[in-house]
Amino acid sequence: MASSKPYPIIDSHIHLYPSSELSTLAWCTPASPLSKQHSIAEYATATGRPSNLEGFIFLETDRKSHLDGPEGWDLPLVEVDWLRRIATDQPKEGEGHEVGNGKLCLGIVPWAPVPAGEEAMEKYVKAVEERAGAAWGKVKGFRYLVQDKAKGTMLEGKFIQSLRWMGRRGFVFDLGVDQHSGGKWQLEEACEMVNRAHEGVKEGERVTIVINHLCKPDLSVYNETDPSFIAWRNAMFRLGKNSKTYMKLSGCFSEMPDSVKNGSILEIFIALQPYLAVILGAFGSFRVMFGSDWPVCTVGVEGADGAWKKWKAVVEKFCYLASLSDEDQIMIWSGTAIKAYAIEELM
């Protein structure tokens, strides 16, 4: 049986969007199972409102955009408007949140035109600050998804320049790569990107990099001698050597066969065990954080409304079977997120 101690929980990775803005999402089609409002009300239902859920960190939802500003930045800035309304308790009718929900929003990670370089970042982040208003203090970092971009994107001079700029400004970079769909070259580039971003930079100015979803390995692979597993494992240990990198224990349902993610908690844990062991060995509990990837975690899960609770139970099973101490578990459930994203409210 997994431990049921009520450790404080910070969900380090969720997405929110109102139904009125579905057309602004680059991936959203009417056929998508996620093509409906996902706001605080829906999130509260999914989680069951546990008393130990302190809050969440919002990650950008891939709004339609392009690097050339300011026209190409319009819709990501509309998303900042949406998060400002949530964080400052200023709801619009029909958007699924209400006064009092703002305290749950502990951090905001918007999109940013990272490949465009330092000058563009300066201009864009100034626009984010203006649009965020009173919620600006909750903006902890930025994300530009590279998982669907061309080879070399992460290693371009302007991309590295932007990462260094974020480090000097104290912003986190959320890194999203995808070994499963994109190939192992994404792992190799991610490792090199971190090296270039930090090389020759003073410790206090090195950008903190929070890695999403274990880098999305193919979780249908259970053989630890499989070349794809070996490539992933090697990359995790390379990434974990850097003290400024953190890993989100999230996004795994999306990379599992339906037969696995719809199995029991123990069956899911057994399938994940080799991967979880690597993550714990490479990063340690003080650089691993719980995240749900809600609502993406619901896709393909039978009884989708229970997907958040199911993933939480898998992580509880992991913590129990790994015999993690109270201190280690506190870090995984909330402490690592507080540290990586500098969430002052709970420190």
Rank of each mutant, 00 (worst) to 15 (best):
K241Y: 14
Y246G: 02
W165T: 04
F159A: 13
C215R: 00
L219G: 00
E188C: 06
F171S: 13
W185H: 09
A235Q: 11
H180Q: 15
N195S: 12
K151W: 09
D178A: 12
P257M: 10
R233K: 07
P227Y: 12
E199S: 01
M256E: 14
I268Q: 13
R233T: 09
V172K: 14
K261F: 09
W232H: 02
P217V: 01
F237Q: 05
N195P: 01
Q161T: 03
N195G: 03
G200P: 03
V260A: 03
D226M: 12
S228F: 13
E156M: 15
F269T: 03
G200W: 07
S254A: 15
C215K: 04
E199T: 03
D226L: 02
E267R: 06
S264V: 09
Q161H: 12
G204N: 02
E199W: 00
N212C: 03
L155A: 13
V207Q: 05
S250V: 05
E188P: 11
M256G: 05
R206Q: 03
F229I: 10
Q147L: 15
G240L: 02
T225S: 15
E188M: 06
G182P: 03
K244V: 08
G263D: 01
G251L: 12
S254M: 14
P257C: 06
C215G: 06
E188G: 07
L175M: 11
A231V: 04
K261H: 13
F237Y: 10
S250D: 10
K216T: 00
K184W: 08
V260K: 14
D148A: 11
G263Q: 02
W232D: 01
G200D: 02
L155H: 06
V172S: 12
M236C: 05
V194T: 09
W185N: 11
A197E: 06
L163M: 10
M256N: 13
R238S: 06
P227W: 11
K184I: 10
V201D: 08
F269N: 08
R196I: 07
Q179V: 04
D174Y: 11
